[in-house]
């Protein structure tokens, strides 16, 4: 199991790097789906099968399909890919990379002080659901309102005049 964790982690990192380096937007999207699926595997390894399934269905499934639809609607062709290549000048990478490297370095420093070996144990759908519809029912309601707001806003924004 532990090997699965590291393999999936490596795939996630590689796929994610591939996402941000892509010039073809559809390829980028496919790499992102791969990255999300890898993370879903990690969730499963960490004993969260419910979250893993949601990650696969909602994230890699629904949300990414949404992206795909929009890309189709925008209908960006070969011209965009050339443009994309122009935009990705090496100089543009320097500052963000340095910034991200510093941030990562700090996070690593902070995180390396934690020393705990966790033994994953399954926390299944039942426990999560019991909590969701028990003490966290208000959070569920809030999430539903948020989704409703997103729905209304998306409809309004994307509407043609």
């Amino acid at each position: 199991m532990i090997a699965l964790f590291y393999i999936a982690g490596a795939i996630a990192v590689i796929a994610t790097v591939a996402v941000i380096l892509q010039t073809n937007i559809v390829h980028g999207l496919l790499y992102l789906i791969l990255s999300l699926l890898a993370v879903a595997v990690i969730f499963y390894v960490l004993g969260a099968p419910f979250a893993a399934v949601l990650e696969a269905i909602v994230y890699a499934g629904a949300i990414m399909v949404l992206f795909l639809f929009v890309i189709m609607m925008l209908n960006l062709g070969q011209h965009t890919r050339d443009q994309e290549r122009d935009w990705l000048s090496p100089r543009g990478w320097i500052a963000p990379s340095i910034m991200a490297a510093i941030l990562l370095g700090q996070l690593l420093t902070v995180l390396s002080s934690i020393d705990y070996d966790l033994v994953p144990e399954q926390v299944g759908v039942m426990e999560v659901s019991a909590l969701l519809f028990g003490p966290y029912v208000l959070a569920v309601e809030l999430a539903s309102i948020l989704l409703l707001a997103g729905l209304v806003a998306a409809y309004h924004l994307a509407k043609t005049k």
Partner: peptide
């Protein structure tokens, strides 16, 4: 087998940075 918890968090940090 156990997984060091910091490895999971570091993975999250790397993904976040990317």
């Amino acid at each position: 087998e156990s997984i060091p918890v910091e490895h999971g968090l570091i993975l999250a940090a790397i993904l976040f940075s990317i």
